[in-house]
Design a protein around this nucleic acid. Structure first.
Lengths: 126, 126
DNA sequence: GCTTGCCTTGACGCCGGTGACAGGGCCTAG
DNA sequence: CTAGGCCCTGTCACCGGCGTCAAGGCAAGC
């Protein structure tokens, strides 16, 4: 499978695949031309990458998952390194959730206060 | 007050203040030198900007708040434009919170599954 | 041989807020 | 007069995951 076909089947672009390769996530063989040649397994790898990116992982975080898949596991998140990243990310997400909840509360407070002030002004006028 | 003093008092840098000016958030008078001259009110404006940035607003979102303050209001969030931005941002934050909660749940699920698989393998060995 | 469509590498652009320089002017104290 | 400390404008760098264009090779059908 050449890069264009893989991109089409994975729902992404050739640019993206070359970028992943540049960052050590995919390593296709090369034809005599220099053309990249991918096998079927790489399709699953690319899907894993895209799924993890969508969840908010960075390419560096994803590397262990890819290695895990390539080591023959049925899922990328069962290896120790992947689990470590999962734990770290979960912690990050949880603290970010807390911060965001604070922000939400502050915004609600400001909105409430703004509405209240508007009513006061309204009363003063009448 | 010159730019360095304002930066010091606001806990930021001169670079940052010039950047805000470039984006229409602060407009100091100029001395004959060309030096920027700020009055006390600008300090409050800069504090408002930094507070909103810290909450996750962009400079464009902040502009109405600054205008509100400069119009003589005691708080930047009591004017209609500011309230509109507040509502929009609150909605954004809430949807982002939902997405992030989903992510958290997925991460927890993957972690649980990984641990489970490890136990199965452990049982197989013994 | 020419066109078409795939492939290759390389490089710039984006977004947003700031750091960090370069190269120069102003002002004050010694 | 000079040194040091403030100010000015302008520009490059960063981060991350790409989009997009440039300039060129390779394969296949007419």
């Amino acid at each position: 499978m050449l890069i264009g076909e893989l991109a089409g089947r994975a729902g992404t672009s050739t640019r993206t695949l070359r970028y992943y390769e540049q960052h050590g996530l995919v390593e296709p063989r090369r034809d005599a031309n220099g053309y990249r040649r991918y096998d079927e397994a790489e399709l699953r790898v690319v899907h894993e990458i895209r799924a993890l990116l969508a969840v908010g992982f960075g390419l560096d975080d994803i590397r262990p998952f890819v290695a895990c898949l390539r080591a023959g596991n049925t899922a990328g998140h069962v290896c120790p390194d992947s689990v470590a990243v999962l734990r770290r990310k979960l912690a990050e997400v949880e603290t970010y959730l807390d911060r965001l909840a604070d922000v939400r509360d502050r915004l609600r407070g400001q909105l409430a206060q703004a509405i209240e002030e508007r009513e006061i002004r309204c009363l003063k006028i009448h």
